[in-house]
Each structure stands twice: as structure tokens, then as C-alpha cells.
Amino acid sequence: MAVSSIGRNIAYVALLAASTAHSAEVNVAVAANFTAPMQQIAAQFERETGHKAVLSFGATGKFYAQIANGAPFGVLLAADDTTPEKIAREGLGDGATRFTYAIGRLVLWSKQAGYVDAEGKVLQQSDWRHIAIANPRLAPYGLAAMQTLDKLGLTAQVQPRVVTGENIGQTYQFAASGNAQLGFVALSQVMEGGRLREGSAWVVPASMHEPIRQDAIVLKPGQGNAAAAALMDYLRGDKARAIIQSYGYSF
């Protein structure tokens, strides 16, 4: 029995070693708005494939600058579709791998329950001091927020009270901490399991701004990387899409 047990252990170790030998790792630059869903997806991806996605979160504009300067990211999950298009055009990534992994939704949010009405009319009130908006030059959600204010004819009225976040993650922190009474953030940051986690919100109609198409692309350092290819396939699969939809994204 002991010999048989040893034999089984040796076989298991050999199988584990073979599995590890075929696993790979990829550095992934992830738009800040996609932080929560991507953390879930990456953990599930590693459990199911053995490959590891090492995640970095930030503003898409800053990631572009880093990629152009040789940062060793293998995959970019952008907050827009124009940055991956530019990356492909400039030879920094493989345009054939590019696809839209999610379409984001913008939301006007307050940590205070009942504060934001269902039509966003709170923007016209004067009892709030600050509104957090991501830098529109770096963050697509910030650009969408400014387009929304333009559409409502409120840009001049609201602009003096804007607190600018470097990315959508910092913008959310301004609103969540109460330093800003309102914030234009990603729906994914305040929604989980199909429900608003706390506070009050106005989901901005998609017609108020350009579509927030979020594209993924394999970058030059990721070409030929098994983990990069596997991750791109996984993001298209039903399990990843179920997570993405639970945070308010569409496709």
C-alpha cells in the first residue's frame, strides 16, 4: 500500500510540474473603471487556466504614455476604443487582436442616499460645493462627463465647482470620501450584482455622450505569450461576460 501511495504522489507531482511548465504570466494594464470586475475575472482565469494576469490599474492616457516608452505590458484593457486603435496604428500592439470587451455607463453619484434624483436635476441646485470629474484629457469617463454637461447646458455653471481626478478611481474616492458631494463615475464602481451598493445615482442616458467603448489589445511584449492569448479568449467567454454584466457594462 505504501508503494502504491508513493507512486500516486509521484504521478501527482509530475502532473503538477507539467501543468506549471505550461502556465504563463502576463502584465495587464487595466482602465481604473474596470478594477473590481477585472480582479474577479483574473482570479477565476488563474484558477481555471493556470495562467496568471498581473494587474496594474490607472488612467488609459497615462498607460498609453508608458506603453509608448517601452513599459512591459502584454495586454491593455483600455477605457476607450481610440487608444487601442492608436496603439495598433503605431505598431505598439497587434491590431488583429483588438476587440470591445465592454461598453461602459456613466453615472452621477452621491454617497448620500436620496441626494441624487432619477433625472440628475441635482446638478442645477446650488447646495453642493464640489463635483468630482476625471481628467477629460486622460480619462474617457471624464470626457463623457463633460459632454453630458455640455448637452445639459450646465458646463459654465458647474465648472467652478469641479474637482479633477487623475483617473476614474481617484474621482470615485473624492466622492466616496465626501470631499465632493457629487461625482461623475463609472456605474461599475457603485454597482455590484446588478444593484447599487450605497448612496443615490442617476444613470446618464447613453445619448448624452459618445459611447464608452472599452477595447482590449495585445501589446508587442505580449505577442507570443500564452497567457496573453488565453486572457483575450477568456474575456470573450460566458463566465467573464457574466461578471462584466453584473457591474453594469454591456457589449
Rank of each mutant, 00 (worst) to 15 (best):
T148I: 06
F184G: 00
S56N: 12
S177W: 02
N9E: 15
D94H: 03
V3C: 12
P211A: 07
Q245N: 13
K239G: 00
G224D: 06
I217W: 00
R197V: 14
Y172I: 03
A156S: 15
S56H: 12
N135M: 04
W109T: 02
V162D: 06
G142E: 02
S207I: 03
M191E: 13
Y115T: 06
M191Q: 14
E119M: 00
G248N: 05
P205F: 03
K52N: 12
I217C: 04
D117S: 12
M191A: 00
A88R: 08
V190C: 05
P72C: 10
A18V: 12
A227M: 02
S5K: 14
Q39I: 13
S177N: 11
Q125S: 11
Y64D: 11
T171E: 05
Q40R: 15
E210S: 13
L77T: 07
V107N: 10
F184D: 03
S188T: 02
Q125A: 13
Y247V: 07
I168S: 08
Q170P: 01
I87T: 02
Y64A: 07
N225E: 07
T83K: 07
S200I: 09
Q170V: 10
Y172M: 05
L149T: 02
A226L: 10
A145G: 10
Y249N: 12
A32K: 09
F251H: 13
D238V: 10
